[in-house]
């Protein structure tokens, strides 16, 4: 009887041959898939590049936009900071330089996304913790020194990022020198209240956290000199905004 594949020596030959053709077919398929993926990646890369180039100015200028852009990249699994060159794709396309800038971008990202709750002041340890999480294990460890240096390099952008010492604790301040949104809110409240604002007013009227209210008021007072402190107020510390006070003379 004849069995397919036979039993003689030639059976080994045939077996080998079919295995070879299978392997060939498989490698052909893989090749096709890879080249397909390659072309898809290239296409995607081009699209993303185009987007980055078109919106380069916007990305550079607007921290919120940059944050959104980075989130978009993250959600589709592309790390804009990764790339063949040192400084990565981000540096290549957006022209933002080296590793320091990358870290700077992440600092901005964290500062902007936490501004709501901390009023633009974040503790160094907290900032490093969040950035480390953002970068993942492969991003390598970052230190306080790295953050300080990166903030230095952010200076030309004029965003007003600064490391300040608050009672022996390092904090990163990210609110710009001009009147920010919180200050606009405080000014509005001050106008309604004839110039005097306490933390409680901002908490009850605008649902701010106590920390945000305190930081915003302290910023206004210490950094910008926009208001005067009254420490003899029955409720504790009161802030007076001269521009909202009514002067008879």
């Amino acid at each position: 009887m004849h069995r397919l594949g036979g039993v003689g020596l030639s059976a080994f030959d045939r077996h080998n041959q079919s295995q070879r053709s299978f392997a060939q077919l498989s490698s052909q398929l893989t090749q096709a898939q890879i080249s397909h993926l390659h072309s898809q990646l290239a296409q995607f890369r081009t699209a993303l590049s185009n987007f980055a180039v078109t919106h380069r100015e916007h990305i550079k200028r607007d921290p919120r936009f940059r944050h959104e852009f980075q989130q978009m990249c993250a959600s589709i699994g592309v790390d804009p900071l990764a790339g063949p060159r040192r400084g990565g794709w981000w540096a290549e396309m957006v022209g933002m330089g080296d590793w320091q800038y990358e870290l700077g971008v992440q600092i901005v990202d964290v500062c902007v996304s936490t501004r709501e709750r901390n009023g633009g002041m974040i503790e160094m340890d907290e900032l490093i913790r969040i950035i480390s999480k953002l970068r993942g294990v492969s991003g390598g460890e970052i230190t306080e020194e790295d953050v300080v240096r990166s903030i230095e390099t952010l200076k030309p952008l004029g965003a007003g990022y600064q490391v300040v010492d608050v009672g022996g604790r390092k904090m990163v301040r990210s609110v710009v020198k001009e009147l920010d949104q919180d200050q606009a809110v405080i000014l509005a409240v001050a106008r309604q209240l004839s110039g005097k604002v306490v933390e409680e007013d901002l908490i009850s009227r605008h649902g701010w956290t106590r920390e945000r209210a305190r930081v915003a008021l302290e910023n206004m007072c210490l950094r910008d000199g926009l208001c005067w402190v009254d420490d003899q107020d029955p409720s504790g510390m009161a802030y007076w905004i001269p521009s909202a006070m009514r002067w008879d003379l």
Partner: peptide, 28 residues
């Protein structure tokens, strides 16, 4: 409103004297 005030000795205090924060040493 912050207004001037004439004291019992006849001195005219400026309106800033009736502003509460005037009596605090300002941190800025």
């Amino acid at each position: 409103a912050l207004s001037t005030h004439t004291t019992s000795t006849g001195y005219l205090l400026p309106s800033i004297h009736s502003a509460p924060p005037f009596f605090t040493q300002q941190p800025n």
